[in-house]
Design a protein around this nucleic acid. Structure first.
Length: 250
DNA sequence: AATCCCATCAACCGCATTGGT
DNA sequence: TACCAATGCGGTTGATGGGAT
């Protein structure tokens, strides 16, 4: 006997969220804070399951989200943390304020993985592909990570920085990447009334996105990321797309 | 201009974990 | 301690847009 579905699919909408739905969800959470997700759709007047609401909020609507590609520093941190934690995306995301596990996971699969492979590094083990092959063929490690990856980096468009401790997980993107990323990370813009309201309003005290640092997690063991929520409000640049120009907050 | 191919990422699915009773 | 419901997490899928042909 299988597990019960998270919600009855009859009458539950799936697929991309509409601006109207986003508005309802934002309005509800900003007014009431996050309560039990299962009850949110009903209370907010949404024909979605709670799981979908949670995902939409955490991955797209949360006010502290940064938009745009990961910066070179963030990418570096992801590689470091992945070497240490593996595919524990939520743990990794906890160290990158404004980034979601989904976003990091996608970025890893679409960008970082390819870069590492291009550099001759196995993204799963963070060892050189040559030595990984050798291990799989002979059962022994035949080559140091440092030497092979350095050679690989020479022939690629990436700069490879060796971990001072001798690890294999310090890479940075080429300048072209950084340029592209910085141009997309438009963190400075004129604050509009909704942004001001968000910054000044008494938001629910139990909202983790207002307080989270993740710095006490023993898993991170000395890996330090950027500071928590820095007030980035780029997400609100899009609110006009939601037809929220006339949106009234209580 | 039309079509195909590929990269990207939002969203879904199902299992794992957590918390309450 | 066992059970159950709610939530979290990671893998995967599919819609979409942009570039190549």
């Amino acid at each position: 006997m299988g597990r019960q579905p998270c919600c009855d699919k009859k009458g539950v909408k799936q697929g991309p969220w509409t601006a109207e739905e986003d508005k309802k969800l934002i309005s509800f959470i900003l007014t009431h804070g996050r309560c039990c997700w299962r009850a949110v759709p009903k209370l907010a007047g949404l024909l979605r399951c709670g799981k979908s609401c949670r995902l939409r909020w955490t991955n797209y609507l949360r006010p502290d989200l940064k938009r745009g590609l990961l910066t070179a520093d963030e990418e570096q941190l992801v590689v470091d943390l992945h070497a240490k934690l593996g595919n524990r995306w939520s743990k990794i995301a906890a160290k990158l304020p404004g980034r979601t596990d989904n976003e990091i996971k996608n970025h890893w699969n679409t960008h970082i993985k390819k870069k590492l492979i291009k550099m001759g590094i196995d993204p799963a083990t963070h060892q050189s592909l040559a030595s990984t092959k050798a291990v799989s063929q002979t059962g022994t490690s035949t080559q140091s990570c440092q030497s092979t990856t350095t050679e690989s980096a020479k022939s690629s468009d990436m700069t490879h920085l060796l971990d001072p401790k001798g690890g294999c997980s310090r890479y940075v993107s080429a300048p072209s990447d950084s340029l592209e990323q910085s141009s997309r990370n438009t963190s400075s813009h004129v604050l509009d009334p909704l942004v001001n309201w968000l910054l000044e309003a008494e938001l629910p005290a139990d909202e983790p996105w207002l307080n989270s640092t993740g710095s006490n997690d023993p898993d991170f063991n000395g890996i330090v990321g950027p500071s928590p929520w820095d007030g980035t409000t780029d997400w609100l640049l899009d609110y006009q797309d939601f037809n929220m120009g006339n949106y009234e907050l209580e």
